[in-house]
Design a protein around this nucleic acid. Structure first.
Length: 727
DNA sequence: ACGCGACGCGCC
DNA sequence: AAAGGGCGCGTCGCGT
């Protein structure tokens, strides 16, 4: 508690100059007057202060408002005395705040926020008003530059509004670890109210870039980006908030049963591991004796430590290195090639442990005890391509291979779960983006694209590339042809190299290369897509999705090698009084040529490293090798367009679903977005109509494409559960 | 004690 | 010779 008085002193000392710039509003009458001004202006920036980051479980402490022409105000709701921990006196009654925030909403005042979904949910749960965010500075920032290193309010404000001059007073570090509720109002209000101002000023800075017709928007070609922002991202916010509020019902009993079962499995596996190590007991003891004090092997051996496993396997047992690049690796790919019982046992142990800690034991812990549901975060702009990310918990990586785990999540009593996934969403989009006639035609004819490609690549018939013959008998060759074609097409989409594709398929590089060449020749659109995407990235610095979302790939234009002097002695005519920064001295062009050529000829990482080391030792030249980064950017060119377009499509579907009043009447609600799949639930009596409407809206999301979308629907009692038939 | 990167691995 | 794109999270082991 002593910290509070320290903070008070510090804030007064540093922020005292601002004390008259901000007001505290403690009664409804004063708030109503402020709201009048907001209504006149038609816009207001708003920021909440809370005791934590969970809008359902943490409390609102207060909120700030700012509208141009007025001072920013702070409205305290739930501050506590840091001495008695009792609710402090003289704060705004929640009912008053509710009435006035509702007035803002009813008068269609534009709410300007940063992290809009969070504040909107806090205000909904803790004050009881559903505000409609007009603008979210965070989303805007992600749309304007997904590579922004620090996409948080204070950093963006400092960088773009203050242009790096001065300091946007940062007191987050000051308040860190202390609940804002315990900070006295007369200390906290300056900090809080200031946030509303910077939220507004950042909005003012960003707005022109997202407003078609302005110089800023035009110069940076942001017309389409602004469309994605205003027509997809911003309207989606309330529906994502709603989805998080919905959460998914957790079957606690089932989860506990599963936990018990898997803990037993884990114990058994550990016992097995210990038993298996016993046969190496003598060697282990010898190793311990030899290493003595410095022995890194714990007692007993830590099965979870890669370091110790490496010692056990490579030093003690003497397993031969499987992977040249990583001779002491303990990854799955490596261990599965080591043919001893201990390796198999370790992998099984890891598998069980991962399931337990990440999923089985995690879910009952993270679920909201009041709702008995898991309310994950869905970050609408969590990825650089436009996809959602999910956290606390991540609902997008729940094992699907192991059906036990997903079954923890069930439909609400009286409801059924409906999942709808786009079939071959990314390949369809790739076909559209490429505008390849044959690919498009295959889809229009209702054919399987991979089979079609396989037939052409292997110069055979469509039927000969199917898993089953017309008479129902198996055709393993056909199945293999299809999987090879599929792996290569997907490889293209991900920028995967031919050798890696060959490795996956367990075929020779030559064979993979031949098929690849054939596919590129027969489907010229695919080749054109790759070339055009790369060209666009090089010329403009970015690629775009079908709907116009940008992915900036600045690294594609890096110099492959950058040369710098590191050692003054090696620089001819180096004048320490003149050339204060040696790294700025241009490296002898002859050296540049020599080493560029050496690097280009190098085979393998080791040789490149050796050349870099050589240049440093012999010539005092530092070589920065950017070829890896350039190659990465090249791979991202096609992938970003395909993955990003798919993300846009799924988001548009979510919008159509959220806006559909009939679906709402039927009691349907969205629960999860899993990239190419949406999962919702609906009262059992409305299943038939709701599921059909759900599917049709997902398909309608991409009606502008050359290829119709296709969705597969599943109706179950729980995630991956028993199918429910519509009666 | 905590923060951070690397690794490993779950999903699409 | 040959690095597949996009995530979040648990763990270890190093650094502060």
């Amino acid at each position: 508690m002593g910290q509070i008085s320290t903070i008070t002193a510090l804030v007064n000392q540093n922020l005292g100059q601002y004390e008259n710039d901000y007001l505290v509003i403690r009664d409804e009458e004063a708030l109503a007057k402020y709201v009048d001004a907001c209504i006149d202006n038609g816009e207001v920036a708003i920021d909440t202060e809370t005791t934590g980051l969970d809008p359902m479980r943490d409390d609102i402490v207060g909120f700030s408002l700012y509208t141009p022409g007025q001072k920013a105000v702070y409205v305290p709701l739930h501050h506590k005395s840091y001495i008695t921990l009792e609710e402090a006196n003289n704060q705004m009654p929640v009912e008053g705040a509710k009435a006035q925030l509702q007035r803002l909403e009813d008068n269609k005042v534009k709410f300007i926020l940063f992290n809009a979904k969070f504040d909107a949910r806090v205000i909904w749960h803790q004050v009881g008003v559903k505000i409609t965010p007009y603008y979210c500075g965070f989303i805007a920032s992600r749309m304007l530059n997904e590579n922004e290193p620090e996409a948080n309010l204070k950093a963006l404000y400092k960088k773009y509004v203050m242009k790096g001059e001065g300091d946007a007073f940062r007191f987050d570090s000051l308040f860190k670890g202390i609940s804002f509720a315990l900070v006295p109002v007369n200390v906290g209000y300056i900090y809080a109210a200031h946030d509303a101002i910077i939220t507004y000023e950042l909005f003012k800075f960003q707005l022109p870039f997202l407003t078609p017709g302005t110089v800023e928007c035009k110069e940076q070609s942001l017309e389409k980006v602004s469309k994605v922002f205003w027509d997809i991202e911003m309207p989606l916010v309330p529906y994502v908030a709603e989805m998080e509020d919905n959460g998914v019902a957790l079957d606690y009993e089932y989860a506990y049963k599963l936990s018990e079962e898997y803990h037993k499995k884990l114990d058994d596996k550990e016992a097995e591991f210990v038993a298996l190590t016993c046969s190496y007991e003598k060697q282990i003891q010898a190793y311990r004796d030899k290493q003595g004090y410095a022995c890194k092997l714990s007692e007993p051996i830590n099965i979870s430590s890669p370091t110790q496993i490496a010692i056990l396997f490579y030093d003690i047992i003497g397993v031969e290195a499987v992977d040249k690049k990583n001779p002491r690796g303990t990854a799955e790919e490596i261990m599965s090639k080591i043919d001893i019982p201990l390796a198999k046992c370790l992998l099984e142990y890891r598998g069980i442990k991962k399931l337990l800690s990440t999923y089985i034991d995690k879910m009952p812990n993270i679920a909201n005890p009041k709702t008995k549901r898991v309310h994950a975060n869905f970050n609408q702009n969590g990825t650089d391509t436009g996809r959602f990310s999910s956290s606390e918990p991540n609902m997008q990586n729940i094992p699907s291979h192991n059906k036990d785990i997903r079954k923890m999540f069930m439909a609400t009593e009286g409801y059924a779960m409906i999942s709808s996934d786009y079939s071959a969403q990314e390949p369809r989009l790739m076909a559209h983006l490429s505008q390849d006639k044959q690919m498009i035609q295959a889809y229009l004819d209702g054919k399987d694209l991979y089979v079609e490609i396989a037939a052409i690549a292997f110069d055979t018939t469509y039927d000969e590339c199917l898993e089953f013959r017309a008479d129902g008998s198996k055709n393993p060759e056909g199945k293999e042809r299809r999987s090879i074609a599929k792996a290569i097409v997907l490889g293209v989409a991900y920028g995967k190299g031919i050798p890696a594709i060959a490795k996956d398929l367990n075929i020779s590089v030559e064979k993979a290369q031949k098929i690849y060449d054939r596919i590129m020749k027969e489907f010229p659109g695919l080749k054109k897509l790759m070339e055009e995407s790369e060209k666009s990235a090089r010329e403009r610095g970015y690629v775009e999705t079908f709907w116009g979302r940008k992915r900036r790939l600045p690294n594609i234009n890096l110099e492959p090698y950058v040369f710098m002097y590191t050692d003054a002695k090696k620089v001819e005519n180096f004048d320490p009084f003149f050339d204060t920064d040696m790294t700025q001295v241009e490296v002898d062009p002859q050296m540049v040529r020599l080493y560029t050529s050496k690097m280009n000829k190098a085979r393998g990482q080791d040789e490149r490293k050796r050349i870099i080391w050589q240049a440093k030792e012999r010539e005092g030249i530092l070589i920065i090798d950017n070829t890896g980064k350039i190659a990465e950017a090249v791979r991202q060119c096609v992938n970003s367009r395909v993955q990003g377009s798919a993300a846009d499509q799924t988001k548009i579907a979510m919008l159509l679903i959220g806006r559909n009043t009939r679906l709402r009447e039927l009691g349907f609600r969205l629960l999860l977005p899993v990239h190419d799949e949406l999962i919702g639930e609906c009262p059992i009596e409305n299943l038939e109509e709701a599921s059909e409407l759900f599917r049709s809206l997902m398909i309608a999301a991409a009606k502008e494409l050359s290829i119709p979308s296709k969705c597969d629907i599943e109706i179950t009692d729980r995630w991956y559960g028993e199918e429910i038939k519509i009666v």
